[in-house]
């Protein structure tokens, strides 16, 4: 295969539950230094796609490369922000503790975090604007604050490629803006960010790359070429009333 600067390369990825396909033969090439949205209707396999890329679900076939090397060898370059609702926020632990978990990968088995790791943790909390909440129990956080905790946890991973599962879901407007700013800062540092996204209206504003997904890949590329009415119609199956002159009409018919 030719040399390239792709941060992420997915080749012929197929995922099935009980041999019911959830993703069919996905090919993706994501250049480094972009913020990419993965959009598609509910049940399109967006979350499954990033979980399969991260090796959390075993694919039926396919290959994932991070900077031209197999994913398993490049795991340390990858950061992950799962869906906020995937964990129990009543768990007896603090904000600092959760963020520290991002460093467990670098620490390896059994070794404990040190003062040095605490410093990294606080730096990340500072970046997401909740350093004052470091000792707070996580059940006392608002939705936006929970999301910031998860982002801080990903930041301490100091990854090159980030995967984020619906980071804008259920957060307040201030947090949404803060996250966008953070993503842009990360891009400036040359990082690649891949985001499962629900809100079609903000795609053109927040992202410079987009993948349209509905069990198979409909299209993938720069937003201005890819995020077209035709592609959207194909993705959402005619459920999108898409009018060029009225961008606020770009809403899928079935949203959560």
């Amino acid at each position: 295969m030719a040399e390239n600067d792709y941060a992420l390369e997915v080749n012929d990825l197929t995922v099935a539950y009980e041999h019911e396909p959830v993703l069919w033969d996905i090919d993706l090439d994501v250049p480094s230094g972009v913020i990419m949205a993965i959009v598609g209707p509910n049940g399109a396999g967006k979350t499954t796609l990033i979980k399969a890329i991260l090796g959390l679900i075993e694919p039926a076939a396919g290959q994932v490369l991070i900077f031209d090397q197999p994913y398993n060898e490049q795991r340390h370059l990858v950061g992950y922000v799962p869906q906020r609702r995937s964990v129990d926020w009543d768990f007896p632990t603090t904000v600092e503790d959760v963020v520290m978990m991002g460093l467990y990968g670098q620490l390896g088995w059994i070794k404990r975090p040190t003062r040095h790791h605490r410093a990294i943790t606080h730096e990340a909390l500072e970046k997401v604007g909740i350093v004052n909440l470091a000792d707070r129990q996580i059940s006392q956080l608002s939705g936006g604050q929970q999301q910031r905790v998860f982002l801080a946890r990903a930041l301490v991973q100091d990854a090159q490629v980030y995967f984020m599962d619906e980071p804008f879901q259920g957060v307040d407007a201030t947090t949404e803006r803060a996250i966008v700013t953070l993503l842009q800062e990360l891009r400036q540092q040359g990082k690649t960010i891949i985001v499962v996204h629900h809100d079609l209206q903000t795609v053109t504003e927040y992202f410079d790359w987009v993948t349209l997904l509905n069990v198979r890949k409909i299209a993938s590329g720069p937003v201005e070429w890819t995020f077209t009415a035709e592609n959207l119609r194909e993705t959402y199956g005619g459920r999108v009333s898409f009018l060029k002159s009225q961008p606020e009409m770009m809403q899928p018919g079935q949203e959560q």
Partner: peptide, 20 residues
């Protein structure tokens, strides 16, 4: 069933790959 489906599924993956 899974064994049978495995081959069937693999064949389908192959043709879809070619089609793509």
């Amino acid at each position: 069933r899974r064994k049978r489906q495995k081959w069937d599924f693999a064949k389908k993956m192959l043709v879809i790959h070619l089609l793509n």
